[in-house]
Design a protein around this nucleic acid. Structure first.
Lengths: 208, 208
DNA sequence: AATAGTATTGACCAATTGGCCAACAAGCAA
DNA sequence: TTGCTTGTTGGCCAATTGGTCAATACTATT
């Protein structure tokens, strides 16, 4: 072959920055969720997005930047998605029940996002050993939950307990539920969520 | 420099297979726990163990084999360590309380092991996308927990509930507790464990 | 058709990866 | 001493990594 063949004149589709970014984010989520963080190299992500490596770097800078961007965006999207379906004016126990159901459903419809988010937040770290996605990023979610619990105590539907412990436990229970439902597709999410809700409420609601 | 300098005659310490293996396992746990799974290359692990890369491969085969070995060994060690401190002849609620305390303490004394185990099990996967550490590896822990709950129901100290849901929730609560204590060293583990125990027992114990 | 501006590529880079293996060192037995 | 076995190294490999950049292809405007 001569050293300078005529370029193969590949077909190129131009999308514009906005849509390309979204496309790459999506590809990142999928690669991470389906094949794990380790497997998610820039080359692999670019390939999944049907785009060259160079473009990924061009739009997102370093790989860490890409991951951080994807994680933060996904976290916000999931949070909004969950909050959207809630009627916060109702009594707190009802809100909790609804939130649990909503979370269980989200775990099904947005399994990819959940899995990817999990892995990124666990693996992505800064220059030293410090995790790059700190509690601060989850703090908003967290605080909202504590506020809700406190309101329940004030309105008299919830007992007196350590709000922090309950909030942590509650989140842990949700994570466990999502992991379990993820591995057992046969289980009915709503049923599980309701059972869990009764269990938790029995622990924190005022005795009737 | 001549192409064949006399070999620098490095100082070499011989330990014997058994102790070397243990040393390498320890190094693996530490690197993974302190710097993340991604950072834990064979070179880095070998370095942390004060040993050449070749030796790690020699004793453990592939990197995946090493990780799987480390994970399974650590899981078993932690499980035994927890079980050792429990008196299973006591009433189930007491056993649960004790187990929670024990877990909280283990989370402190064996933080490295817990963190590493977590990361390995989340990142290590087989040739395809399938995780290499499946639920089956955790099944033993799991089943013991369900058996305990069922015994509580039979002896009349626990209410009637879905054993599976409670077991999953219970495990999730423990994980959440460990993660929280890990990030908040100021919190007293025993106090947290006791609060959590009351919370959970309020949900599953028979009303007095 | 020429121009300008944006979108996108592919080739290239040094560094690192997991894995392999011939050589060699150390202790033990003869 | 001589060998034999076990432990250990370091150099080497092809493949892949994250990242950069000049060159290009496309679109819109003139």
């Amino acid at each position: 072959m001569s050293p300078s063949d005529p370029a193969p004149t590949r077909r190129r589709e131009r999308l514009g920055e906005e849509r390309r970014r979204a496309q790459i984010v999506r590809a990142t989520l999928e690669v991470v969720a389906h094949h794990g963080y380790e497997y998610a190299s820039l080359a692999r992500i670019a390939d999944a997005a049907g785009v060259s490596k160079g473009l990924v770097s061009h739009y997102f800078g370093s790989k860490d930047d890409l991951m951080a961007t994807v994680a933060r965006g996904t976290l916000a999207a999931l949070r909004d998605s969950l909050a959207a379906g809630l009627d916060l004016t109702r009594p707190v126990p009802d809100v909790l029940r609804a939130a649990l159901r909503q979370a269980a459903r989200l775990g099904q419809t947005h399994a990819t996002e959940f899995r990817a988010l999990n892995r990124i937040s666990l693996n992505l770290r800064g220059p030293d050993e410090a995790p790059r996605l700190t509690l601060a990023d989850y703090e908003e979610t967290y605080r909202a939950e504590e506020a809700l619990l406190r309101r329940g105590q004030e309105e008299g539907t919830l007992r007196d307990f350590d709000v922090r412990v309950v909030a942590v436990t509650y989140q842990g229970a949700i994570d466990a539920m999502l992991a379990y439902l993820d591995e057992h597709p046969d289980v009915d999410p709503d049923r599980y969520a309701d059972t869990l809700a009764e269990l938790l409420l029995a622990g924190i609601a005022v005795r009737r």
